[in-house]
């Protein structure tokens, strides 16, 4: 969903850049609390993982593909503030080195794929976690649902930005319907990849899944090793 140059006009792109910079500043402060000597290298790897998986476009129907955005995936693994920074690093590398996502649209892309996905998606994760049993395995379905909703919401956020600063006068309802429809399907892919990844890390190293920290009491009880 990388917005190229020319879709959104200059004033709105500039405003988006200011909003994105403010969001990143907040996340830089918040991430300090999430990162220690153990999680900092992991967070770097999560950014690299998001970069790699974003390259893997999967088909979502005739002539169309989708790819992971990764906001919810990163937030669940390393925390929401750090997660936003992970996806933003990916977007900056893509725009500067791979000509993917316009330079003037960098703020737009950070808002859509890092900030909106994390706010909406990780917010959903927290709500779902409260509804599900208080077990660390609940982090997986919560991540699934969060990822699922994050993609169509990001698509609608694009339409909202296009409504304010779109460079062509097009029927917005039609754009919104098309964007929402295809991104509902892409969201299923996002949800599957996110749940698979979170589930894998949770199996191997539950202590490294940020969204599973809330179940720490259960972890204490369970980690008494059987045979030692």
């Amino acid at each position: 969903m990388h917005v190229p140059d020319g879709f959104i006009n200059a004033p709105v792109s500039l405003a988006a850049g200011v909003v994105a910079a403010a969001g990143l500043a907040i996340c830089l402060r918040g991430a300090r609390r999430e990162l220690d000597e153990k999680t900092a290298p992991l967070a770097g790897l999560v950014a690299a993982f998001v970069f790699a998986v974003q390259m893997i476009n999967f088909p979502v129907g005739v002539g169309t593909s989708g790819h992971l955005m990764g906001g919810v995936l990163a937030a669940v693994l390393v925390g929401p503030y750090t997660g936003v920074l992970c996806v933003s690093v990916v977007l900056i590398v893509q725009a500067l080195f791979f000509a993917d996502g316009g330079l003037s649209a960098l703020g737009v892309n950070i808002i859509l794929m890092a900030l909106v996905t994390t706010l909406a998606g990780y917010g959903t994760v927290l709500v779902v976690q409260r509804l599900l049993p208080n077990k660390r395995a609940s982090a997986v379905p919560a991540a699934f649902v969060g990822a699922l909703v994050s993609v169509p919401i990001a698509a609608l956020a694009f339409v909202a930005l296009y409504a304010v600063g779109g460079t062509a006068d097009l029927p917005l309802a039609e754009v919104a319907l098309a964007m929402f429809g295809v991104h509902v399907v892409i969201g299923i892919g996002e949800a599957l990849i996110t749940a698979l990844t979170v589930g894998s890390v949770l199996t191997v190293r539950p202590d490294l899944v940020h969204a599973a920290r809330r179940y720490e009491q259960e972890l204490e009880l369970r980690t008494a090793p059987a045979g030692s």
Binding site: M1, T64, S65, L170
Partner: peptide
């Protein structure tokens, strides 16, 4: 990876948004 356009690029091409696209 699929080499088909992604969701945004598909919608942009179908609706005319992409007519305004500028070279990177």
């Amino acid at each position: 990876a699929s080499s088909q356009p992604d969701g945004l690029n598909r919608v942009a091409a179908d609706t005319g948004i992409a007519d305004q696209e500028q070279e990177h």
